[in-house]
Design a protein around this nucleic acid. Structure first.
Lengths: 302, 302
DNA sequence: CTGCTTCATATCAATTTTATATTGATTCCA
DNA sequence: TGGAATCAATATAAAATTGATATGAAGCAG
């Protein structure tokens, strides 16, 4: 007795479909062949496996016993094939990720570091974008995934997953230490030169709207091109600025920077992962997406 | 991609043997074929599975991942085949069992009852034998297994497994009720007519030896041909007899029977399952053996 | 009854597997 | 160093299996 394992795969599909004709279809094979295989299998095993009828086939008690094992076997082989396919997909390839500066600094860098070490064969392209630019890149297929900050316009074509919140705060340089003694209102802040990201960024929109909510208009004296430029500008007393708290934890950049106390709270913003619903992700991209999605609840460092 | 499952079986053996040539032997196949299959498999999966060397092959990390799944798959299919083979072996066939009367009454009957209901297709032949006769039947292949009582001569050719102990007791009929007031010694018993199994049975030998240990000789006034005859004889006051305690639990046969108190204890005897080491058992016989062996620790009734 | 579905059978071409013979590389041992 | 032994790779031809098409038979619904 030496039964071809292919017969067991065919048996599996017939049992699963309860229909030889349909099983043949799923197997990309033809009905007479499947019929023959099942018959041969039954002869080889010395017992009947199916009860045939006009509308398909049903497992006999013995067929059922066999199926319990064959199911595990087939599903394991399929799992093995998938796993190999998966690991193969992580040995090479390119993942393109569009990220806003804040997302990059506050979330992405340690994840990308880990990802690169886990899958050294995968090339990661990072393009720095404002949130609206990132969405365009995503829509045009220029980026596989994007990590951006709220506020964020919803769209049918993109899928949004919130990763975590972050808090921004107002900071000033040494020349403004007199401000530190009191707790400031937004109205007070409009009196002081403000360093802000350029119009067109969602950060700019966020603060415009925030101040508008108090009947105030912001008047950015200096528009920084990138968020990274804000702290140096603040340190050089060009004005006060709003930066994510995470930016301040870096001790190197911390000197000469003072955090202002505010009466009103700045509403928290979120870092979101977004993806084009219509374009399928490569395995490497899926893996990176998974890592980012999981970063909220686990190992972010290391 | 549609890889033959036979390839995975071959892969399994190659991985297990670490040697293509030997795997081919185990598969009853030839080395060039196995070489070809592995190569084809590697091409189909798009990665190498083995590192070849002068003394065999070793799994690559990917091969190892695959093996983890394939191992489960192959072992499940083999288990399925075995299970079917097993259940097929229990659908028909004959099991011949040699049993002493005591073994039959005290142990075997409920087990056989259950066995018959579980495997109605298997014919069970019970031959009633004294212990020495049962051993002969076993040696001659006339019985598959035997269930007998100690004392039991050991032999190279038979395998003995103790199932459980049983206790015998002395009983008398209504005419001897005067004996019940006192506690008797073996010496007292030799004064009373004794009903015993015929010489040549192990039961006879047991009591001969037991009394001899006290310097006494038993003088069986009546030799019963079967153990079943002892209680009726005792009830008719032909003398006193020794019977297993289990015999007394039957209320029908209990009337007119009185249990004697003895000074000395009757050593417990055992019921053993014995089997010819040299003859392989059929699946049906193995199943019955298993049921008997397990009867000590579980469901004996039902 | 007719059309539809399902499994069974026959047949033949295409493919795959098996087996044999041989080569090449490496190790082991004298 | 040289020869036997071991192990994998290759070539090739015969044998077996598989896959595809056509067709049959039986049950069922309208």
């Amino acid at each position: 007795m030496n039964i071809s394992y292919d017969y067991y795969r065919i048996f599996y599909y017939v049992a699963k479909c309860g229909n030889i004709t349909q099983a043949a279809k799923e197997l990309a094979n033809n009905q007479p062949n499947v019929t023959r295989v099942i018959k041969t299998l039954e002869q080889a095993l010395g017992c009947s496996l199916f009860v045939r009828s006009h509308n398909g086939v049903v497992l006999t008690p013995e067929g059922d016993k066999l199926y319990a094992h064959v199911k595990i076997a087939v599903e394991n082989i399929q799992a093995g094939e998938e796993e190999l396919e998966h690991s193969k997909g992580l040995q090479k390839g390119i993942v393109s990720i569009a990220a806003s500066e804040v997302a990059l600094r506050c979330l992405l860098l340690p994840i990308l570091n880990r990802y690169r070490r886990m899958y050294p064969g995968v090339q990661v392209k990072i393009s720095n974008h404002s949130t609206p630019q990132a969405i365009f890149a995503l829509r045009d297929g220029l980026a596989d995934i994007a990590v951006v900050t709220t506020p964020l316009d919803n769209s049918d074509k993109i899928h949004i997953a919130k990763i975590r919140e972050f808090q921004e705060c107002a900071v000033c340089g040494d020349a403004y230490t007199s401000l530190l003694t009191s707790t400031l209102s937004f109205s007070d802040i409009t009196e002081i030169p403000l360093i802000c990201l350029s119009a067109g960024t969602k950060t700019y929109a966020f603060y415009t709207e925030l101040f508008a909510r108090y009947g105030l208009t912001i008047r950015p004296d200096i528009e920084a091109a990138t968020a990274d430029q804000i702290l140096p500008m603040v340190r050089n007393n060009l004005g006060i600025g709003f930066v994510p708290e995470d930016f301040l934890s870096d001790t190197n950049e911390n000197t000469g920077i003072h955090r202002l106390k505010l009466i009103q709270e700045i509403p928290p913003r979120s870092i979101c992962l977004i993806r084009n619903k219509e374009l399928p992700l490569s395995i490497a991209a899926k893996e990176l997406e998974k890592m980012i999605l999981h970063s909220g609840c686990s190992f972010e460092n290391q």
